[in-house]
Nucleic acid binder design. Structure first.
Lengths: 174, 174
DNA sequence: TAAATAGTTTAGTGATTTTGTCAAGTATTA
DNA sequence: TAATACTTGACAAAATCACTAAACTATTTA
């Protein structure tokens, strides 16, 4: 339940690839396609939306590609998903485009709006920068994994590194 | 994005109606259908699932209907949704039935699993009892509304009443 | 014991959304 | 000016959703 569409997922992963080139190296659709295993045609659609939303810019011609308009730290996952999928609306009664006549007397209205707000708050907290840090620790883990059993829990080293708030560190996940 | 299916929504609303009859008065599908504006046939499907899951019982014959198997306080919204829609799986890679080969190296995996855990934790906190209390305060609000402008924020009276943890009170929602 | 009440079970189906592909075109730069 | 890259819009297969239909089974009360 509460499945996120592939469009949103691919969008976040594409933005992550573009963030890797920040601040100056443009990332091409082809690169993103290969690294994230998403078709070029579909990515064009997705990145087009994000460009029109002002989150990224495109540079044409050889050596061209996509660039972040702001630093990774200032681009939240929530802002990406909002452009690709619209605002979080757990139920149709919470969708600005739909609404519901029963709202006033409905006991579940508050429940869903409350959940939606929690989700949005979380997604607005996590940024592309957190994903970049996450990638770094993943690489560490991969090289150090041979003589360790993975617990699903992050290592102590990670907690030390991502000491800031908002990061996807162990304390937040477990 | 992240839309909950009507099946889950109707299920929660149906359970709320059944909870109103707790502990002894059985609620018929017809009653639920009329009060919650959901078709009888669709409710049959939904309640059947919940009955098989052991959350409710059915009593056949005249005077029959559906009953909660446990007190409203012990039935969480999360437990209802889990039966109707399966576990929270924001992405297919988190679905036990699907999985993903890229998991180990995927920077977004932790992000989605973390979000899913937060959602589940929230839904497991809210119970049918909270909805019953919510209904009571809604009734209060409705009668007291004539000389007040609704702000979308709950009144102070509500905050005082639902002082326990886990309730859908103002502090949790805003 | 029969009639009324109420729940059970299994299929099926139209509408909508998702998840893309395809093709032709436009823009930029080495 | 060739190579590279982005743009746009149409289109369609596949999946899911949101139910409906119909025949059935079980229980209780008159």
């Amino acid at each position: 339940m509460l499945r996120l569409s592939t469009k949103g997922q691919y969008g976040v992963r594409a933005m992550f690839e573009i963030a890797k080139g920040y601040p100056s190296r443009p990332t091409t659709i082809k690169e993103i396609s290969e690294r994230q295993e998403v078709s070029v045609a579909y990515l064009e659609q997705i990145l087009n939306t994000l460009r029109r939303a002002g989150i990224i810019s495109s540079v044409k011609g050889p050596g061209g590609g996509y660039l972040l308009n702001r630093p990774p730290k200032e681009i939240s996952i929530g802002s990406i998903l909002k452009e690709l999928e619209g605002p979080v609306a757990i139920t149709s009664c919470l969708d600005p485009k739909e609404g519901c006549s029963r709202v006033d007397g409905c006991v579940t209205y508050l429940l869903w709006s409350s959940l939606g707000e929690k989700i949005e708050a979380f997604l607005n907290t996590i940024t592309l920068d957190d994903l970049l840090k996450e990638e770094a620790t993943l690489k560490q883990t991969r090289t150090a994994r041979s003589n360790k059993i993975r617990t699903g829990r992050k290592t102590t080293a990670v907690q030390t590194k991502n000491k800031g708030k908002g990061a996807l560190d162990a304390a937040e996940v477990r």
